[in-house]
Measured scan of single mutants.
Amino acid sequence: GIPATNLSRVAGLEKQLAIELKVKQGAENMIQTYSNGSTKDRKLLLTAQQMLQDSKTKIDIIRMQLRRALQ
């Protein structure tokens, strides 16, 4: 079985993952909103794209940590 310490770690990672998935969803929504907007929305679009990139990276890292914890 999986050690108890790993189980609480997994629960924490799953919570983090859920949050990051919401951030990713929000960033994707912002990108959709701003991509057909005016030029003043360009900065917001770039910010949203950066957020999305960061979020995807975090999600990958969390998933990797989850896999390790579940081994």
Rank of each mutant, 00 (worst) to 15 (best):
K58R: 09
I62L: 13
G12P: 03
A48I: 04
L45S: 01
M64I: 07
Q25D: 05
Q49F: 10
K22A: 10
Q49H: 06
N29I: 13
M30V: 04
I19K: 11
I31Q: 01
E28L: 13
G12A: 15
R42E: 14
S55A: 12
M51H: 04
Q16T: 03
D60Q: 11
T5E: 13
L13W: 04
K15S: 04
S8D: 15
I19C: 12
R68F: 14
L7I: 10
P3S: 05
K24Q: 07
I2F: 11
T39V: 06
Q25Y: 05
T33F: 09
K58T: 02
N6F: 04
K15D: 06
T39C: 13
M30F: 05
K22T: 07
K58D: 00
D60C: 15
L17N: 00
R68Y: 15
N6Y: 06
I59E: 01
Q32N: 08
D41P: 03
Q71R: 08
T39K: 09
N36L: 05
S35C: 14
Q65T: 03
R9F: 14
S38Q: 09
K56A: 04
R42L: 08
V23A: 08
G26C: 15
T5K: 08
L44N: 07
N36H: 12
L45D: 01
D54G: 05
S35T: 06
L66Q: 01
S55G: 02
Q71L: 11
A4M: 07
A27M: 08
A18S: 06
A27G: 01
V10H: 02
L45A: 03
K15Q: 06
T33E: 11
I61H: 08
A27H: 09
K24M: 13
A18N: 06
T57D: 14
L13T: 00
V10N: 03
A18P: 00
M64C: 14
K58A: 06
L52S: 01
T57H: 12
E28P: 00
G26N: 14
L66C: 02
I19D: 11
I2R: 09
S38R: 03
V23S: 03
L52T: 01
K22E: 07
G12F: 15
I31S: 01
L7D: 14
E14R: 15
T33Y: 08
G12E: 15
Q65I: 05
E20S: 03
M30L: 10
V23N: 15
I31N: 01
L46I: 12
M64L: 13
L17I: 02
Q53V: 11
G26W: 06
T5R: 02
L21C: 13
L66P: 00
S8V: 07
I59L: 05
Q50W: 06
R63A: 04
R67T: 09
L52F: 05
R63T: 07
L46S: 04
K15M: 07
L13C: 03
G26T: 10
Q16H: 03
A69S: 03
D54C: 11
Q16E: 07
L66M: 03
T57W: 08
S35H: 12
I2H: 13
S38A: 14
G37P: 10
K56I: 13
E14K: 15
A27S: 02
A11V: 11
P3G: 09
L66I: 13
K58G: 01
D54H: 05
G26V: 13
R67N: 05
L44R: 06
K58M: 04
L45Y: 04
G37E: 05
I31H: 00
Q16C: 13
M30K: 05
Q16K: 07
V10T: 03
I61K: 08
R42N: 13
E14H: 09
L13I: 02
T39G: 07
K22V: 08
D41H: 05
Q32H: 11
P3E: 12
L21S: 02
D60P: 01
Q65M: 11
G1S: 12
K58V: 02
R42Y: 15
E14D: 02
N29A: 12
N6K: 07
K58I: 03
K22F: 04
G1D: 10
I61F: 10
K24Y: 13
I59Q: 00
K24G: 01
G1W: 10
K22D: 05
I59V: 03
T5G: 09
R42V: 11
V23L: 07
I31F: 02
T33R: 13
L70E: 06
K15A: 08
L7K: 14
